[in-house]
Write a protein that binds this DNA or RNA. Structure first.
Lengths: 285, 285
DNA sequence: TTTGATTGATGTGTTTTGTGCATTAATCAA
DNA sequence: TTGATTAATGCACAAAACACATCAATCAAA
């Protein structure tokens, strides 16, 4: 059983067509046909039922398709990570973070990293929700900053900071101070907010704010990119809610008015990390 | 990359000795040496540092050893399970259960199973704690009876029953009725109990019983086998606490005195089970 | 220092396996 | 009935894997 055979199998299980699959895999139909047959014979399992016109997965084949797809991905990702370990300190580390900390926490960290490890390449990615956990589980990411509090047994974590939320307003907006924030005024506003998702602490905190005024926001634009939101607010297209730390960007024509809601930021990394570089960089968090 | 190469690698990573490893794998030292080298070249990772006298894992090699061991095991276990699915209804299903239900729940289930599926082979196993979950995750077990309440997203569950605990006493023991159970008497007793483990509901319930009398048991014998415990109690070597359903065994010379503590029994099986036989048998639970 | 034993690497020839090309047999649609 | 499509297969060749034998490096004992 080879990883090649497994990926051939997965490809055919997707396409259910020998010629088409073999074309995509850059091999001949004959080679594919034989490899599948070899796999079936080695495992002593019928994977496909095939007539000269139709290819279908057997139930055992369908089971293996579902099981092997993530397994093969995991094998490859461990290999990639082992390569990184093998190369040593000149390697790359992958940091996932919410856009909102791109202006303070991340530059801070990167400054320290590049000072101590000038040759290290840092890759920044922004995924969210369940995908962040997949990222660090599959060794595709090394450090994760998240607003969400995870309780797992394979990660170590540290609370990095707690940040106030602020209303983000155009310079000349009618809301001037906290006392101006009342139900009636909020209901007249149009909001530019990030994608609000269930089970996401950040989203939930924002919703708690509106709930405290017994209202729901009228959302006119949705964006997950801080700078986009700031520009839209500046253009008078609506108001927003963002972590107060965004005010450090000094975006012109925009005011930040703190509200009594705050969100925490956590950093996560793998327990018993094998990559010495990652272990060292975690020290800087 | 072949599964064979991976298992060669894992074997060598354990032994750190080419000749010894090749002997265990029933191949020549030359074949092993070349396969490892081929793997290293394909992945472009140094797995071992070797002189003509010493073999050692590199840090990348050590990482892959830890990662690949469970992955390879999972690949094999999925294959085994696919074979079962492939064979269909004449297959085997594996049921894990605590010994305490061997006298009522299990025979009940087996009667119904063998009536409807006379050709099905049922394998009964008894593991406990975290191993139960591994069993069903790796497709090495199909149905699990457990006293423990698991909250997972890949299992379905059903509460099967709730069973009273009983003090198990020799026929002529001084404790005759519930009112006789007092702190002073309990402290004089020697107990025969199963292995009490943290995070195990059954153990915790037993400990709650003693706590309610502000005492801790003096344990003289430890056994996880119900019939052993019963015989020891009968022999006057101590008293015990067991699920009341054990009284159905009608072990002579032993009395069961119910106490107001109960434990629930849950059955678990995989969500979206692929094996039709298992799906059918779950109906009987 | 010398010698012998041990260990991993490697050269060689043979066997096994994988692949492409061409062809065949089965099926479907016109 | 005919032509097109599709998976299987015979064949030849190339690549890979293997056992055997040998080599070079290392270590321990004499």
């Amino acid at each position: 059983m080879t990883t090649q055979q497994i990926s051939y199998f997965l490809a055919l299980a997707d396409e259910l067509h020998y010629w088409q699959t073999s074309y995509k895999l850059n091999i001949t139909q004959s080679a594919l046909s034989r490899q599948i047959k070899a796999l079936e014979e080695e495992l002593n399992i019928e994977l496909f039922t095939r007539s000269s016109r139709k290819v279908e997965l057997t139930s055992a084949g369908s089971f293996l398709q579902k099981q092997w797809k993530p397994l093969l991905e995991k094998i490859y990702s461990t290999v990639d990570y082992a390569k990184k370990i093998n190369k040593g300190e000149g390697g790359t580390i992958v940091i996932n973070h919410p856009g909102s900390i791109a202006y303070d926490v991340i530059p801070d960290l990167l400054t320290r990293v590049s000072h101590s490890y000038p040759n290290v390449k840092v890759e920044l990615v922004q995924v969210k929700g369940a995908e962040e956990l997949e990222l660090i589980k599959n060794f595709r990411g090394d450090v994760i900053y998240s607003r969400h509090l995870y309780e797992t047994d394979f990660l170590e974590s540290k609370q990095v900071n707690t940040d106030n939320l602020s209303l983000v307003l155009p310079e000349k907006h009618v809301i001037r101070k906290e006392a101006d924030i009342v139900r009636k005024v909020l209901q007249q506003q149009r909001f530019i907010l990030p994608n609000l998702q269930p089970n996401d602490s950040y989203s939930e905190t924002i919703l708690r704010f509106f709930k405290s005024y017994k209202t729901t926001p009228e959302v006119c634009f949705v964006s997950d990119f801080g700078s986009t939101i700031l520009s839209l607010v500046q253009g008078g297209l609506g108001i927003s809610i963002m972590p107060h730390s965004f005010s450090h960007t000094h975006h012109p024509g925009v005011r930040f008015l703190p509200i009594p809601f705050s969100i925490s930021l956590y950093a996560y990394w793998r327990k018993e990390e094998e990559n010495a570089l990652v272990r060292n960089i975690v020290q800087f968090i």
